[in-house]
Structure formats: structure tokens, C-alpha cells
Design a protein around this nucleic acid. Structure first.
Lengths: 223, 223
DNA sequence: AACCATATCCCCCTTTTATGTGATACCGCT
DNA sequence: AGCGGTATCACATAAAAGGGGGATATGGTT
């Protein structure tokens, strides 16, 4: 089978690539990988989200290689911003983290593809061609992680806002009485919430409750 | 004041640089930063610890730019290995993580310097010159983190092996009775250990105990 | 030999949690 | 008007954990 990127006709306009990453060496590395290939035209780069917004990226780039971790703003939000431009560029997310949460968030905010920073030149070009043609591209690892993440979210117990609130306060070390006082309700109420939390998280004491909560990323304010 | 790297005489032998990183684009980026400067000679690179050991790095490199996160083996262990060679190269650790634990571990295993992956060309060359001259180099951020880490380790409560063992079992959700059974001791003993843990970690219930333990990285088997 | 940290065990008592089985009220949806 | 989910509160009992006090044995250090 012929690799997709070899199907590209040589007389087409080059794909205009814009890079957003706060690591100079990553920018250099990406540019180096693409410079030699006449299929690409490097139209610029930004090292922060705000800087990126200063360019008319939508106007003169076909694809943005977007790092998830930027100093000023999450790449996830920048992704949404870029996708709301018109015309909007295709987005290929590039990250050193293969956390399923990140991948899922990025794709849900409009990214067209996701590759790790340890990507080879071959895979990178393949990914860029894919997203510029309107297809999605996920590296093998990213795909696996995404599936696992979807699975996790389905399995994840559904807590009410009040329950999450109580859970946080339990985790912070307060007793039921202290929580009740803080929330201006009776101790019985907190007792109930606690019972429901134990049941929903399949726990039978505080320690296993917190363990289970932590495994499901229920602490650290994931609303 | 004249930057140290300008003090270098132009007739000196170039500094032989070897790169270890599993990210092709980082390798490209680093090489690109250094290639133009005649003070450096790029003598090769490896993308894994085992591959690195296949080269006679000690023989023909003055400095190794070493990523902490390698696919097969921790960069920390590779660092120790390289430092035990003779002659041994100078090591400049390069990481995308500024976790104090990593920095501290790296420096304790013989690294001569530590910079983040978002390092500029100027700082990188400065760091390389420093370590090849036998001096240590820490980026400003790394230095701050290292100090904070030292402070943390001093403040950290000292637990006995038995206490750590009990702590782990508590965190896993077992009751005192279950722990006692598992360790073949009486419940009273676990009761005592638990009391001591509460006192040492300034906690007054299971939740705050686990919270405090987590803050001190006492879970996740840091012996 | 005296000291100290560690690990083991015990008693007493109080507070907090865990478990069960309710009830009432509000809200949004059908 | 009825249903389901959420939040609130209550009563009761049992189990577990928190907070004092102490005792004994062991191994290593000084």
C-alpha cells in the first residue's frame, strides 16, 4: 500500500505550517523536520498563546502544530479559539504527555490530530497531510489512551455537585460535624452524603473512599 | 561583566557533545542550536539508555546532554553509569519537568548541570561551557526548585520502615484489624503505629493523615 | 552498663464512622 | 398529576478510629 503522503501531487501549493510551542528547541526541531520537504511552507511560530493570537493565523496558515502546555494559557483553550476563527486552521496537537485526559480534552475542543513529541519525521508529515485533508490523525499510543479514557469516563461514578463538595471537604480532613457547620446543614445530612459517596465509589471506609476518588480524578476540582 | 562563554579562546579544541533523548525533534533542535557554533562538535546521539551504552561515550565526548525521561531506563541511572566510566563525560541534564525531586536526584547521581527544555540557545551554550569547565550549572528555576526540595526533605517527618508499611496499608483501605492480620501482629500494635503516624504527620483523622502523607510523597513507595 | 529508638502489646474511654431504614420537600420533566 | 433525582433530616446500632496512659523486649550506640 502506498503511504498517503506519497499520493500528494508535486504541483500543489505547499501546506502552510504555523508552530506554537514555548520550547525553542522543539520549534527548531519541528522546523528542521519540515524545512527540507517542499510540500511544506513554514509561515511562522509563536511561543505563547497570547503571542499566537497576535498573528492572523487563520488567514495564512493551513495547519497549526500546537503544544498543549503553554506558559500563559492552556493549549486546549487556544485550540478552541483557533477553531472559532474563519477561516480556521487545522490543528495538530503535539504533546509530551500521553495522558488520556489531555488527548480527550484536545479532541473535544476541535483538534484534528494528536501526536507525541517523540514523533518521527515520517509520522509527523503523515499526520499533517491527514489533518489538512480533513481527516483525523491519532498516533497509535494516543488512540489507545483515548479509548481507555472514554472507557474510564463511562465507568466513572456520577456524583452530584453537593457530593463532590462534601468529598472535597472530607479529603481536606474535616469531620462530618465540621462539614455540617461549614455548609449550614445538619450532621445527618452530611452523614447521608457520606453514605452515598461510599456506595457510589464502592468504598467501605474513609481511606478506600479517598483512594477510589483519587483513581477517578474526583479530587483536584474536575467539575 | 563578560559572559563566561566569551572568555573561551577561539583556538581551543571544540567541545565534543553527545545527545541522549528519545524525541527526534529535541535532538534536531539541540543540534541546530549548537551546529552553527564552532565551539562545539556534535559527536552523535542516542535515543535510549541501552543505545547510549553501546557507544564509547566516555572516550570521545566531553559533555552529554541527557534527557531524564528515556523509554527503557531512567536518565538518573544512566547518569550514574556514565559518571562511573573513565574517562567520564560531564553531564548536563535536560528535562521538561522542573520537579524538585528529579533535579535533586539527578544532581545527587553526578549530574553537573540541569536546564529545562525551554532553554534558549544562549543559556544552553552557557550551561555547556560551565559544566565542561568543571563548574555546576542550574537554571534559575531549577535552582529555586532545588532549594525548595532540600527544605522539603528537611521538614519531612521521619517514619520508620514499619510505619511506612502500615501507612501504605491504611492508604490502600484496610482497617486496623485487617492490617494486624496481614502483618501477624495484634490490633493494639497497629493502633500504636497509627497513633504515631497521626502524631508525626500532624493529623487527627484518616483523611488528614493521607492528605499529609500525600503532600510529603510518603505514598508511592519512596523508601 | 546505661541509653535510645523501634516494635510489640495492653487498658480505658470518647469520638467519629459505617450501616440500615426511614421521611419530607423541591425541582424538572412527561 | 405522577415520577425520578436531589437534598435535606432523623433514629438506632455496631464498628472503627482517636486520644490518654503505660509496659516489655530487642538491638545498636555510647
Amino acid at each position: 500500500m502506498i503511504p498517503s503522503h506519497q499520493l500528494r501531487a508535486s504541483n500543489m501549493n505547499p501546506i502552510r505550517v504555523f508552530i506554537v510551542d514555548d520550547h525553542p528547541m522543539v520549534i527548531e526541531g519541528l522546523q528542521n523536520m519540515l524545512r527540507a520537504d517542499s510540500a511544506f511552507e513554514l509561515v511562522g511560530h509563536a511561543m505563547s498563546a497570547s503571542s499566537c493570537k497576535g498573528f492572523f493565523v487563520g488567514q495564512f496558515a493551513d495547519v497549526v502544530l500546537l503544544d498543549i502546555n503553554l506558559p500563559d494559557e492552556s493549549g486546549i483553550q487556544l485550540c478552541r479559539y483557533l477553531k472559532n476563527l474563519s477561516p480556521s486552521p487545522h490543528i495538530l496537537a503535539i504533546s509530551s504527555f500521553d495522558s488520556g485526559t489531555f488527548i480527550s480534552d484536545m479532541m473535544n475542543h476541535g483538534a484534528d490530530g494528536y501526536v507525541m513529541k517523540n514523533v518521527s519525521k515520517e509520522e509527523l508529515t503523515k499526520a499533517i497531510f491527514a489533518v489538512t485533508q480533513g481527516r483525523h490523525y491519532l498516533s497509535h499510543d494516543a488512540n489507545e489512551k483515548l479509548k481507555a479514557e472514554k472507557n474510564r469516563r463511562e465507568q466513572m461514578p456520577v456524583l452530584t455537585v453537593r457530593e463532590k463538595e462534601v468529598l472535597q471537604l472530607i479529603a481536606s480532613g474535616l469531620t462530618n460535624a465540621q462539614i455540617a457547620e461549614k455548609l449550614f446543614v445538619s450532621v445527618s445530612t452530611i452523614d447521608s452524603h457520606r453514605k452515598n459517596l461510599l456506595a457510589k465509589l464502592h468504598a467501605n471506609n474513609t481511606a478506600s473512599l479517598l483512594r477510589s476518588a483519587s483513581e477517578n480524578f474526583l479530587l483536584t476540582s474536575e467539575k
